[in-house]
């Protein structure tokens, strides 16, 4: 192949324009990556700068008059730590429940029709909720009549059947050869044993992908906290952050808080909390990222 290119003489000519192109390409991609990174770095720099420097707009990509005080203030604020704990609890509980439901749902739905005759009917029951839903107010009213307002279960249970993740898991289960499963049946294993001992160990990349989505989704959810929690002290972190970052309600602050606010400035304080809110994602992301490329495309693109 390469020889042919060289023989026709186009190889050398190509490689010059190719070099120019590649240089432009590297430049373009570097710029794209920086475009994604720089706003975040800017906010990080602001959060680590003194309030005067931040208020005057001196901070670009590196902290000016470095200080941890905004972080110290955020972490000693009981409301912040409380919301952080609620979020952690929500992620733990939500992760356990959601993964269990996803796995238990995806396994039967991954069976062919001759193995599981009712599959088609069940599949429609699940898929229909993806296309149509009751809407905001009816869902809110249902939760309210169930007496789940202000309970952590209102944050965990309504989203515990994420159809997209079920489909992802189901498509992965389908790629596992039938022969393995059949051999297990011969050895006397039932469906539950097969799922536990064969399907799950073989699905680790896919489980990692789905885990990433479930954890990130639970950590990032803020809207359900705002509508299902009547009291702000029940807010998970993202809902709490919304109330202070997006709508800072200065009237509700105590006078001592207002005093501190004057010292560390709203801007650096907000920036610090933005970063604290993103830290768990920053921790989970690189760890699971290597799996999700393979796991995701396996599930979503078929042919």
């Amino acid at each position: 192949m390469k020889q042919k290119e060289e023989m026709t003489g186009t190889h050398i000519k190509l490689s010059v324009s190719r070099k120019v192109f590649l240089a432009a390409d590297y430049l373009f991609l570097t710029c794209s990556a920086l475009l994604c990174l720089l706003p975040l770095i800017n906010v990080l720099a602001v959060s680590l700068s003194s309030s005067n420097a931040a208020a005057a707009g001196y901070v670009k990509l590196w902290p000016v008059e470095f200080t941890w005080s905004s972080y110290q203030y955020a972490l000693t604020k009981p409301q912040f730590t409380q919301a952080f704990l609620i979020s952690a609890k929500r992620v733990a509980l939500g992760y356990a429940v959601t993964m269990l439901v996803i796995i238990l749902t995806a396994y039967p739905l991954s069976k062919e029709k001759d193995v599981f005759h009712a599959r088609g009917k069940y599949a429609w029951i699940f898929i229909f909720t993806m296309m149509f839903n009751g809407g905001l107010i009816p869902t809110y009213m249902t939760i309210r009549y169930l007496g789940m307002l202000d309970s952590i279960w209102a944050l965990v249970l309504p989203g515990a059947v994420p159809i997209f993740n079920v489909v992802l898991m189901m498509n992965f289960f389908r790629t596992i050869p039938h022969e393995i499963e059949e051999a297990a049946f011969i050895d006397g294993a039932g469906h539950f044993t097969t799922l536990l001992k064969i399907y799950l160990p073989l699905s680790l990349p896919s489980l990692a992908t789905v885990s990433l989505f479930v954890i990130v989704n639970h950590w990032n959810s803020w809207f359900d906290g705002i509508i299902y929690m009547n009291h702000t002290y029940n807010y998970p972190l993202q809902s709490y952050l919304r109330t202070i970052i997006i709508n800072p309600d200065l009237q509700s602050m105590t006078s001592s808080e207002q005093l501190v606010m004057r010292e560390i400035s709203e801007r650096t304080f907000k920036a610090a909390q933005i970063f604290l809110g993103a830290i768990p994602i920053l921790c989970v992301y690189p760890f699971l990222q290597k799996y999700f490329m393979s796991g995701l495309t396996m599930g979503s693109v078929k042919g």
């Binding site: 439901v101 238990l104 009751g134 249902t142 169930l146 309504p158 469906h191 539950f192």
Partner: peptide, 23 residues
């Protein structure tokens, strides 16, 4: 067993998705 496995998911869907549809 396949039917049994679907029970938790179905129950959650009915309570949190189908009941609100009637709402």
């Amino acid at each position: 067993p396949l039917h049994l496995m679907l029970i938790p998911g179905l129950a959650l869907l009915i309570i949190f998705h189908y009941v609100p549809m009637f709402g």
